[in-house]
């Protein structure tokens, strides 16, 4: 039950938003996350967005993984 999933914001209506949830659109609360825009990914849990996915950080982590595994090969 504790599973939280990243979902894409499709439309915003005040503190609520429509998200793309495995192909279906669903209305969720975005009352507890700052500055979300259409196209952002949020972490959704129990009908409530609890965090916003930071794309820059995601890229950085991926770069870091690559860097770590490169070190190995040398």
């Amino acid at each position: 039950m504790c599973v939280a999933v990243p979902v894409e914001i499709v439309k915003i209506d005040g503190t609520e938003a429509w998200v793309n949830f495995g192909g279906v659109q669903k209305m969720v609360s975005i009352a507890l996350v700052e500055d979300v825009k259409v196209g952002d990914y949020v972490l959704l849990h129990a009908g409530c967005a609890v965090s916003r996915l930071d794309r820059k950080e995601a890229e950085k982590t991926l770069e870091l993984f690559k860097a770590y595994t490169m070190m190995q090969k040398e």
């Binding site: 916003r52 996915l53 950080e57 950085k60 982590t61």
Partner: peptide
């Protein structure tokens, strides 16, 4: 913190406030 794409140092302040 390996999960920086979703976890910040302070967490989600708005959620914590609630």
């Amino acid at each position: 913190n390996e999960y920086t794409r979703l976890v910040s140092e302070e967490g989600n302040l708005k959620a914590l406030e609630m």
